[in-house]
């Protein structure tokens, strides 16, 4: 499935993600890493679960409001449900041991020039690329 290059919207979206990361640090003193924020609301709950849940709720509601206001969000999932379940499980285990994901390591960590985050980001970008190559060009499951 082809998708079109969207440099302006993608850059603008990236700037908003960055603004959110800066504000969360300025206000709460926290890294805007989705892994860390999510882990705190999975039982056993962390003691400061309330702001985490509020952040997650805000993140989930905003796009719905945007659509209700007439905005358009391109969305297509060229992946079967069983593969999504397996992928999700692997993501969960990986981000727990890797202590972060694209937002925590890839944005906040690299912005702080953290060597751990730079190493983690290079690693997951590489294995994601190799996985897509294997699925689409070796296994022939071009989606």
């Amino acid at each position: 499935m082809e998708t079109s290059f969207t440099p302006v919207m993608s850059f603008a979206g990236g700037v908003l993600i960055g603004l959110a990361a800066v504000l969360l640090m300025a206000v709460n003193g926290r890294i805007a890493g989705m892994t860390g924020i999510l882990a705190g609301i999975i039982p056993p709950l962390s003691s400061d679960w309330a702001w985490r849940l509020a952040f997650l709720a805000g993140a989930a509601v905003a796009p719905v409001v945007m659509i209700a206001a007439g905005g358009v969000i391109d969305y297509a999932v060229p992946v079967s449900l069983p593969v999504l379940a397996i992928g999700g499980l692997i993501v969960g285990i990986g981000v727990y041991f890797g202590a972060g994901c694209t937002s925590g390591h890839g944005v906040c960590g690299i912005a702080r020039l953290s060597p751990r985050s730079i190493a983690a980001t290079l690693t997951f970008m590489l294995t994601a690329g190799l996985t897509v190559y294997a699925v689409r060009h070796l296994a022939g499951g071009a989606a």
């Binding site: 890797g98 983690a120 294995t127």
Partner: peptide, 19 residues
């Protein structure tokens, strides 16, 4: 760190979703 990140990338590449 590296093993976890490597796993995360595999799951991301399979599903297209990150957290």
């Amino acid at each position: 760190l590296i093993g976890g990140a490597a796993l995360f990338g595999i799951g991301w590449g399979l599903s297209g979703f990150c957290p």
